[in-house]
Computed example of a mutant assay.
Amino acid sequence: MKLTTHTDYALRLLIYLAVRDDQMPATVQAAATHYGISTHHLAKVAQTLVQLGYVASLRGRGGGLRLQRPAEEIGIGALVRQTENLELLECFGPESTCPIEPGCRLKGVLAKAQQAFLAVLDGYVLADLVENRQQLRVLLGHSA
């Protein structure tokens, strides 16, 4: 299963926010610069994360982004479920027009594989991804 760029950037932004030791909120511009990615696209991702309750957006001078909840409470599997379209094939949706769907076993095999993929992700929280916080700070250009 390939994750979308939206989910990739969501995970990157959460990691960026989790490793910061600065008390000031982070900006989308700074995060995008550190990763070398589109500020415009990352701003859309940040908006999604705010809507989902993972990130708080602070307005005004000194505003920016910060984690809304502790990294220990941000489940990776839950995030992927909320940011991905998990309909692997047309037959996973309600509007399937596949003529062999009633007898097809592929859907069941793919559903089982997807469940295994998500079960592994469910075993991790954001805090697990940033246990090497100091190394990530250096790689992202933050002071160690």
Score class of each variant (00 low, 15 high):
residue 40 H to G: 08
residue 55 V to E: 00
residue 132 N to K: 14
residue 124 Y to M: 06
residue 86 L to D: 00
residue 22 D to F: 11
residue 2 K to I: 06
residue 26 A to P: 01
residue 24 M to E: 07
residue 140 L to S: 08
residue 72 E to T: 13
residue 23 Q to H: 08
residue 33 T to Y: 00
residue 80 V to M: 10
residue 115 Q to T: 00
residue 3 L to G: 04
residue 76 I to D: 05
residue 30 A to P: 12
residue 64 G to Y: 04
residue 60 G to S: 06
residue 9 Y to G: 03
residue 101 E to Y: 10
residue 6 H to S: 14
residue 21 D to R: 15
residue 139 L to N: 10
residue 72 E to V: 09
residue 111 A to F: 13
residue 87 E to F: 05
residue 60 G to W: 10
residue 33 T to E: 09
residue 4 T to Y: 07
residue 60 G to E: 02
residue 72 E to M: 07
residue 47 Q to E: 09
residue 126 L to H: 09
residue 121 L to V: 04
residue 74 I to D: 05
residue 5 T to M: 07
residue 138 V to W: 14
residue 115 Q to F: 03
residue 42 L to G: 04
residue 7 T to P: 09
residue 78 A to T: 12
residue 111 A to Y: 11
residue 13 L to T: 03
residue 64 G to M: 02
residue 107 K to Q: 13
residue 66 R to K: 15
residue 8 D to A: 14
residue 77 G to P: 02
residue 13 L to W: 08
residue 97 T to C: 10
residue 80 V to N: 10
residue 78 A to R: 15
residue 102 P to D: 01
residue 50 V to R: 09
residue 136 L to C: 07
residue 25 P to V: 01
residue 123 G to M: 06
residue 115 Q to L: 04
residue 77 G to F: 12
residue 31 A to R: 03
residue 41 H to R: 14
residue 118 L to H: 06
residue 67 L to E: 02
residue 37 I to F: 07
residue 36 G to W: 02
residue 135 Q to L: 12
residue 68 Q to I: 02
residue 101 E to L: 14
residue 118 L to W: 09
residue 56 A to V: 08
residue 141 G to P: 03
residue 69 R to Y: 02
residue 4 T to D: 08
residue 46 A to C: 08
residue 132 N to A: 12
residue 120 V to S: 02
residue 7 T to W: 15
residue 23 Q to M: 11
residue 57 S to Y: 01
residue 105 R to K: 08
